[in-house]
Design a protein around this nucleic acid. Structure first.
Lengths: 117, 117
DNA sequence: CAGTATCCAAAGGGATACTG
DNA sequence: CAGTATCCCTTTGGATACTG
């Protein structure tokens, strides 16, 4: 997304961490995919494709690779006749729970304020 | 960023709230600008332009309008000889504190894990 | 000073078809 | 089934110059 160039006061480490965290959840499909995996457990490519309505295989493939690169999900190739692949959340992905909760809490309050404008 | 089309299990309200919250912090400059305002208090257009190194007036203008539309900042025109404009965080922006903290916490842990890969 | 106007490059994302 | 390949459109953001 581009390097961080501004100079606010907090430590550089915190700023980079903040940026990383936001980028990891940004984009049209990331949270959707993570949410599906969280609520349904292990899923195959096809399953995620169908539950994330509107996503195309190309985009899904890219998103899954990105999530795997960031250790948020595991990718397992199964020994089936036509090969299948299973995806599941890692323990590390579980650490996003407090983040998601905080985001939802703020988002709910925010929506109320914006709607009554 | 596009409508939410996936169908995970949580309530629709929470999903929209989550999406809103993430979008509000997404992009190359949002957190940077908010952080500057948080740590320096009221700032003028020129001040933000200089502390957010690399941003151009056009982009800054758009970002500030977006933040104002979302009630995160106030915009005040001052009665000075060459007109100046002051920006400041709203109380509502203060509600992002827990979100930011959670994001930083996860981001720090995430960076550690990724670096040692 | 605080923006706006124009032009432009790069990234994100969609439609469709194809492959191992 | 699980992707890739191509093509194309939209969005984001940068460079530069200009205005009230």
């Amino acid at each position: 997304m581009g390097k961080l160039k501004c100079e606010p006061d907090p430590s550089i480490d915190k700023r980079l961490a903040l940026r990383d965290a936001i980028e990891l959840l940004s984009g049209k499909w990331k949270v959707c995919i993570l949410s599906n995996l969280y609520h349904r457990g292990t899923m195959r490519f096809k399953d995620i494709l169908e539950t994330s309505k509107g996503i195309t295989p190309k985009v899904l493939s890219k998103e899954l690779q990105h999530l795997e690169d960031n250790l948020m999900i595991t990718r397992t190739v199964n020994n089936t006749k036509p090969v299948t692949v299973s995806y599941a959340l890692t323990d590390h992905a579980g650490e996003t729970q407090p983040v998601i909760s905080a985001l939802i809490l703020f988002g709910l309050s925010h929506r109320k304020k914006i709607k009554n404008k």
